[in-house]
Amino acid sequence: EVHFESHGEEQAMRVVKMLKKRNLTVEVKVENNKWIITAK
Rank of each mutant, 00 (worst) to 15 (best):
V15R: 02
E10K: 12
K29D: 02
H7G: 07
N32Q: 05
V30A: 02
T38P: 00
A12T: 04
T25K: 10
F4C: 15
V30E: 05
E5H: 09
E1R: 10
K17V: 15
K20S: 06
W35V: 04
T25D: 08
V15E: 03
L19F: 04
E31G: 04
K29Q: 09
N33H: 08
H7W: 15
L24H: 04
K21L: 09
G8M: 13
M13Y: 05
K17L: 13
K34M: 11
K20Q: 13
F4T: 03
E5G: 05
V2Q: 07
E10I: 08
L19W: 04
G8F: 14
K34Y: 08
E10A: 13
E10T: 07
T25I: 14
N23A: 06
I37Y: 00
V28H: 00
R22D: 07
E5Q: 06
E27R: 07
G8C: 15
V30K: 10
E10W: 12
K40L: 09
K17N: 13
E5V: 14
S6I: 15
A12R: 03
I36E: 02
H3A: 07
K29S: 08
V28T: 02
N33T: 02
V30L: 11
T38Q: 03
L19K: 01
E5P: 02
I37R: 00
R14K: 09
I37E: 01
R14E: 08
N33E: 08
K20M: 11
A12Q: 01
A39R: 01
M13N: 06
S6K: 09
V2L: 14
K17A: 14
L24A: 03
I36N: 03
K17D: 15
N32L: 04
V16A: 05
H3S: 10
K40A: 09
T25L: 12
A12Y: 05
K34A: 04
L19S: 01
F4G: 02
H7S: 11
A12K: 02
E9F: 14
S6F: 15
V15L: 15
E31P: 00
N23V: 05
A39E: 02
E31R: 06
K20A: 08
V15N: 03
N32E: 08
V30G: 01
H3Y: 13
H3T: 13
L19P: 05
K29M: 08
E1N: 10
W35G: 01
S6W: 08
S6A: 15
K40V: 09
E27N: 07
E1Y: 13
T25N: 10
N23T: 04
Q11L: 13
N33Q: 05
I36V: 08
S6G: 10
K21N: 11
E5T: 11
H7T: 12
F4N: 04
L19D: 03
K20W: 08
E10Y: 07
H7Y: 14
V16W: 01
E31N: 06
M18S: 09
N33L: 05
K34N: 07
L19I: 01
L24Y: 15
K29I: 09
E1G: 10
H3K: 11
I37M: 00
L24N: 02
L24D: 01
H3M: 12
M13R: 11
M13E: 06
T38W: 03
M18L: 11
E31K: 05
I37T: 01
N33S: 05
V26T: 02
K20G: 10
I36F: 07
